[in-house]
Every structure is written in C-alpha cells, then in structure tokens.
Amino acid sequence: MKNHSRKVPKIKMAIWGIAIILFSACSPQLHKSSSFELLSIDPLTTIDKDFEEIIAPYKVRLDAEMNKVIARSEKELTKGGKGETALGNLVADLQKEFSQEKFNLPVDISVVNNGGLRNSLPKGDITVGNIFELAPFENFIYILELNAEDVKRLGEYAVKGKNLGLTGLHLEAKENNLNILTVNGEALDHSRKYLVAINDYLANGGDRMDFLVDLPRVKSSNILMREMLLDKIKALTTEGKKVDAAIEGRQIYK
C-alpha cells in the first residue's frame, strides 16, 4: 500500500466520477480492468475544501438519484439461511429471467454467490441506493455451457460451501454428500448441454470455482448484475408487483 498525504482529492474524484457518469446523457460502455491503486485514509483525513465545492452540485444530483423509490417489498429480504436464502433466490431468479430475455437463450440454471450480495433489501420502499448497496461490485453476467458432469461438480461445490443462490438446480445432501440433484425437476441428461447464468467473478474461478474457468463462454456480457437488478425490479413495479422471495427447499441439507 502506498503512502499518500492526508488530502485525498483523488479518492473524491473517483467517487464523484461515478456521479458524473450516472447523469451523463449517454451511458458509456464499461470495460473490465484489473488496474487499481490502494489509497490510505483514516479518521484524521481532511477534506479538500476546494474540491468539495466543485463536486457539491453533483452530490445533490447523486443523492436525489440514489433516494428514488423504485419498488416495494412486503418483508426484509436477507441472506439468512444455510446455502439457500430468500435474497439469493430472488437475485438468482431475476438473473435467469433477465438472461433469457436479454440474450434470447434457454438458460437452465442461474447461480449467484451469497458473499457478493453485500446488503439486505428492506421491508417497504426499495431505492436505487439499496440496489447499489446490495450489488456494489462490477460483476458482469456470463452464460456458460456445462455438461452433466460439470453440473454435478457445481452441485457438489454448492453442498460443500453452502454459499450459492440457485435457480433451476435442486439438490439434497446428507452429511455434505450430494444425494439428489435435478435440473428443473429432471434428472441429469448426459447427452445434453446446460446453459448457466453466472457472474464473471465466479466464471473466472472466484470463490475457488476453478472448475468453471475452462468451460465454454456462450455469452460474456458487459452488463452488470446491478444493472440487471435495477431493470428487473423496476419491471416488477411496472407490472404492479412487489419484490418478494422465500426459502423454498431448493437446497436441502440433513
């Protein structure tokens, strides 16, 4: 980590650059990059007053955008649960629906990592800011092609880690041994391929999912999971529906 002076306009420039992007007339194409720089800050860090004046108008606009109500929920949706969670089910469901609609592909399974969901969705009003808090990472949606053995490895991984939200994949396990696995209610078919919606972090081996790295990429999109959530949750409101999900027994551990 590099040492920096206690004035940190570079940090504020990065933060409020996001605000400028949000309110630009045209939305730019996002590009994945591994470049980054760690900047040291602490409670003694002072505010650059000149820069604060420059960004003040953007902050007002950003706050207004983040506080926009886009949906309502009957209850708080959290990551509480053992593997399967209400929040994980919601995000996995929306990712599957979005991917089928956006890419015109028959997606069989949708996978999200519960660790990547960084906040709950509150009961009552859901704002744009809530979605940014839920999905702060720049995770892009990918579609992978798996054979039956790959799907089985995915199920075994889910049983071991108990850290995935799943749609389309039902599994039952006892003492961490996978006993039952079905895809959309059917046994694995070793003669066919399965399409899986997942984020690029997991597809590229994140969370020790190395077995996904060399699998065929049917679609490597530049669509953020956060954008997907905003799109689908706004659509629910347009349809007169509230945001809701529950633990349904998609993953059963004994």
Score class of each variant (00 low, 15 high):
55 I>P: 01
73 S>I: 01
36 F>Y: 04
6 R>C: 08
94 L>T: 04
111 V>E: 03
98 F>I: 02
253 Y>R: 07
178 L>R: 07
146 L>V: 04
184 N>M: 01
242 K>Y: 05
251 Q>T: 12
25 A>M: 10
13 M>C: 03
75 K>Q: 11
92 A>M: 00
26 C>L: 13
99 S>I: 14
17 G>Q: 01
66 M>S: 00
184 N>F: 07
136 P>S: 09
31 H>C: 04
161 G>I: 09
74 E>W: 11
88 G>P: 15
22 L>G: 01
80 G>T: 14
19 A>S: 10
44 L>F: 12
208 R>A: 15
91 V>I: 15
125 D>F: 02
2 K>D: 11
157 Y>E: 05
134 L>M: 11
246 A>C: 02
14 A>I: 02
209 M>T: 08
249 G>K: 03
218 V>Y: 05
61 R>D: 08
240 G>C: 01
130 N>C: 14
217 R>M: 08
138 E>I: 02
195 L>Q: 06
173 A>G: 03
148 A>V: 06
11 I>S: 03
63 D>Y: 02
196 V>P: 02
76 E>Q: 11
192 R>W: 00
180 I>P: 00
122 P>C: 07
202 L>V: 04
188 L>A: 12
89 N>G: 14
53 E>Q: 13
194 Y>S: 03
52 E>F: 12
52 E>G: 07
92 A>G: 14
108 D>T: 05
45 T>M: 10
37 E>S: 12
102 K>M: 10
246 A>H: 05
181 L>Q: 04
51 F>K: 05
226 R>P: 14
145 E>A: 13
163 N>P: 00
237 T>W: 03
175 E>H: 12
84 E>M: 04
126 I>D: 13
235 A>G: 03
99 S>F: 11
126 I>K: 06
119 N>E: 13
153 R>Y: 05
245 A>M: 08
105 L>F: 03
222 N>Y: 07
234 K>G: 08
121 L>K: 12
120 S>K: 14
121 L>N: 10
61 R>L: 15
138 E>P: 00
168 G>A: 06
79 K>V: 07
102 K>V: 03
210 D>R: 09
84 E>S: 08
123 K>H: 11
161 G>W: 13
212 L>H: 05
91 V>W: 12
141 I>F: 05
